[in-house]
Amino acid sequence: MKLKRLFQVLVLGGTSLIAACGGSDGGNNNGTTTPPPHSLLPDGGTPPTGYNGPTIW
């Protein structure tokens, strides 16, 4: 029951956040179609081998 509530709060809550700020067409570029820069993230450091994501709390 708590996990069902978590799904509602996190997943559905997240998707409704986008609906509330103009839907999935919303963005901070005022509707223009400027392509994103070549790189959106800096290179960053190299994680230990085998780590493909951040660990949980």
């Binding site: 996190l10 809550g13 997240g14 998707t15 956040l17 986008i18 609906a19 999935s24 963005g27």
Partner: peptide
């Protein structure tokens, strides 16, 4: 956590 699901929706 919501941030991720909202990002996917966008």
């Amino acid at each position: 956590a919501r941030l991720g699901w909202a990002y996917l929706a966008w």
